[in-house]
Design a protein around this nucleic acid. Structure first.
Lengths: 384, 384
DNA sequence: GTTGAACCTTCAAGTGAGTTGAGTTAATCG
DNA sequence: CGATTAACTCAACTCACTTGAAGGTTCAAC
């Protein structure tokens, strides 16, 4: 509900908040850290860091974890994030269900839930959301992230077409904040999945990366400098729609590299996997239809990798989403990495393409991860 | 020379500097602005803004431009950026020459120069640079931007291959700062060209856009939230290397959409334009070879537009660089804009594709514009 | 084993910048 | 012309960071 200024000015209060985020962010990155070390890293005085740490201790955000000896001089007292200090709620609204997950500051999943829907209009969804915040005891909820299909963005859904009926005319963010009673961030599935990988998955410690997300189709989440990049209107990352060359002529990427494409190819071969386990079994059984898909999909993904590396120059690219891990691994192994790329360097810290570790629920968990990431990063925010 | 912290903490001094940038940025965006108005926009108190404006007046950064009447209440005193308050130097280092341009805070070109080189090793270039800062009297230089070919970025050129011989082993940024005696920002040509369009060209007032730059090949400059986006290693924007479909099969974009490609096609038709004016005349003469190139290039650019819109969702895309304006206009007019794009919306504020207005010297001027943009934007910077 | 350098931490005073609230000035509106 | 509205200023206040001196611990060298 906070009226957010685009670029708020800085005053004492906002400085403090920013520096708290800076300290928390450093501790999270390092796992644990001493005060003098944080002071050196941030350019703040040790005294300032001491005061902030004292605050954070009093508020329960960090805990003392011991002393770091071995060096000359007095050993530093180290601190770590207290995972239970706060929890975040992630909500995914689908046409047929609402998925929810609660995570703590360390990214541990505390609880999750699924509520089936017959319709997903606001009047069907909002009452379901009202019951969610009370579900976890002990941890105080600091915010919620919400994943919705359709173009979302800086202006919310208002005035834009959405794939969810009935949400077109209302400001989704405001309605959701009211229903949940929490600060809400709305994002698309690929972006939240990327954040899930950053907070609790394969992208920990990586600030700039791209995430290819297998949902209904294929989405792209971009993280730059530790923050989601959504484009000018929040609709960046529609990579599924771009054409890729195939032997039969150009098609859209997600017509080849997606769960839908896999299911279609399997169906043409008379296979009808019903569950996720059925899909996971494909890796071991390796039926021709699967190998065929793998071939087409990985070739197409190679094209996507080429695009992303040349346009975005990420530290790494991550495959994640609603495909079983062995299949993601197969894709990573098979995808040809282009020789001609600015990313093809010998001094890389990370492989160019890796499989995500968050799994099927990446989008829902990522919605919550978005909130955690915000809480543990410095940012100037007006609190009017 | 300043040891730059990645994320510096905020203290009173840095807050002030940040808020000064905020105030200057607001005044630049609006052209002129009153104090109360700035206070509302920034969330600062009117008193704080008053104090900052008093400082800026004393230092000569802003000037009073009158009073805004017509409203009820006491009319606001308005202020505007004083263009002569500072100047920025832009330097472009090419294998055969050093280009330089001086601009003031309003983006007006004060002076420009060209020094021919036979070689462009550091020992050839650095002495030339030493003479540049003294060239403009009156305005104090606040910094320099430098454009160099080859992969540049967060680590400078050190340890990476460069297209300029002899620069591989040294830290370019440090060497350049020493030679120029100014704070230096190193960027690639496409990114500086984008900044030129933002500060003094077709992208004024646009915060998130993509810029296709016709240099030797075809480069991409990305500006997000008013800042250049360079990728994790400073090598984002290599759009020239990506494959595009053509009737004869896929080729690299810059093999079709570039000045080089135009010159080659003209040569095959027996035409050998020697000067920029010869090229500009093509628009009027419209020889078949030119029309052929136009056809191929604009089709390929249509593909690039599709990619950029779907991956980055920019407010607009700008064509700029070393092609005469009428040719850029021809390209803009001919380039097919894909129907299937998140950018194909009715409520757009800007056309999807526009021609740049900075012209041939976009990269050099943009290097200077980069400095101006930094000076007039809020940023937390440690000044150790 | 003693000495001393290196290092972390705290105390207390000081500083800079933004905030607050009352008061002043100058327009427009009825 | 007075009421209202809005921009601006003054002076006291508060907050958060900095500075510099002092106190503790640890390791390493003699």
């Amino acid at each position: 509900m906070a009226s957010t200024l685009l670029t708020p000015g800085s005053n004492a209060e906002r400085s403090r908040q920013y520096n708290r985020g800076l300290v928390l962010g450093h501790i999270r990155r390092e796992g644990e850290a001493g005060r003098a070390e944080i002071a050196r890293a941030s350019g703040l005085s040790t005294q300032a860091v001491s005061n902030i740490i004292a605050d954070l201790l009093a508020d329960g955000w960090v805990v003392e974890t011991g002393r770091r000896s071995g060096q000359r001089g007095q050993p530093a007292v180290t601190y770590a994030i207290r995972a239970e200090a706060g929890a975040a709620l992630g909500v995914e609204i689908r046409p047929d269900a609402v998925l929810a997950a609660w995570i703590d500051l360390a990214g541990t999943v505390l609880h999750s839930a699924r509520v089936a829907l017959t319709r997903a209009r606001p009047e069907d969804v909002l009452p379901v959301l009202q019951g969610l915040p009370g579900r976890v005891a002990g941890c105080s909820l600091i915010g919620a992230g919400v994943v919705m299909p359709g173009p979302v963005g800086v202006t919310g859904l208002s005035g834009q077409a959405s794939e969810l009926p009935g949400w077109g005319g209302i400001d989704a963010q405001v309605a959701l904040e009211e229903a949940l009673g929490l600060p809400v961030t709305v994002e698309n599935d690929a972006n939240t999945a990327a954040m899930a990988e950053r907070v609790m998955g394969a992208a920990q410690g990586i600030d700039t990366f791209a995430c290819l997300y297998f949902g209904t189709g294929l989405g792209l989440g971009l993280v730059a400098g530790g923050e989601v990049f959504g484009g000018a209107f929040g609709n960046a990352g529609e990579i599924g729609h771009i054409p890729v060359p195939t032997p039969e002529g150009p098609t859209r990427l997600e017509d080849v590299a997606s769960r839908m494409a896999l299911v279609r190819l399997l169906a043409e071969a008379g296979l009808h996997p019903a569950t996720g386990d059925d899909l996971a079994a494909l890796h071991a059984q390796a039926p021709p239809a699967y190998l065929d898909w793998l071939d087409r999909a990985s070739t197409a993904l190679g094209h996507a990798v080429l695009l992303l590396e040349n346009l975005f120059d990420p530290e790494t690219i991550i495959l994640t989403g609603a495909l079983p891990p062995p299949i993601l691994d197969d894709l990573v192994a098979r995808t040809p990495l282009p020789e001609l790329s600015v990313s093809n360097r010998p001094d890389r810290r990370h492989p160019r393409l890796i499989a995500g570790r968050v799994g099927r629920r990446a989008a829902t968990l990522g919605a919550a991860a978005l909130v955690v990431n915000t809480a543990l990063s410095p940012r100037l925010v007006a609190t009017a």
